Computed example of a mutant assay.
Amino acid sequence: MIEPAESTYQVWYCKQCDQACKIHPPTVKPSCRCATPLPGLRPTTVTQMHTPQPKRLQALTDEEGRLRALARKGRRVRVTFEAEVAEAWISSSGSSGRRVQFIVTTPDGRRHVVDSGLPGLHIEAASDGEQE
Rank of each mutant, 00 (worst) to 15 (best):
M1L: 14
M1Q: 15
M1K: 10
E3V: 14
P4L: 12
E6W: 01
E6K: 04
E6T: 12
T8R: 07
Y9S: 05
V11E: 03
Y13M: 02
C14F: 01
C14I: 07
K15P: 02
C17T: 02
D18H: 11
A20E: 03
K22R: 13
H24S: 14
P25M: 15
P30V: 08
P30C: 11
P30M: 13
S31L: 13
C34W: 15
A35D: 14
P37D: 05
L38W: 10
L38C: 09
G40I: 04
G40M: 11
L41T: 08
R42P: 00
T44E: 10
T45R: 07
T45E: 12
V46D: 07
T47D: 01
Q48S: 03
P52R: 12
P52H: 03
Q53H: 02
K55F: 05
T61L: 06
E64D: 12
L67N: 08
R68V: 00
L70R: 09
A71I: 04
A71G: 04
R72M: 10
R72K: 10
R75S: 09
R78D: 15
T80I: 12
T80C: 09
F81T: 14
F81E: 01
E82H: 03
A83F: 02
E84A: 02
W89T: 14
I90Y: 03
I90V: 09
I90Q: 06
I90H: 01
S91F: 11
S92I: 05
S96D: 15
R99D: 02
Q101M: 10
P107E: 09
P107A: 08
R110D: 04
R111P: 00
V113W: 14
G117E: 08
G117K: 15
P119W: 08
H122C: 03
H122G: 00
H122F: 05
H122I: 08
I123K: 11
I123M: 12
I123Q: 10
I123A: 05
E124T: 11
A125R: 06
E130V: 07
E130I: 06
E132M: 08
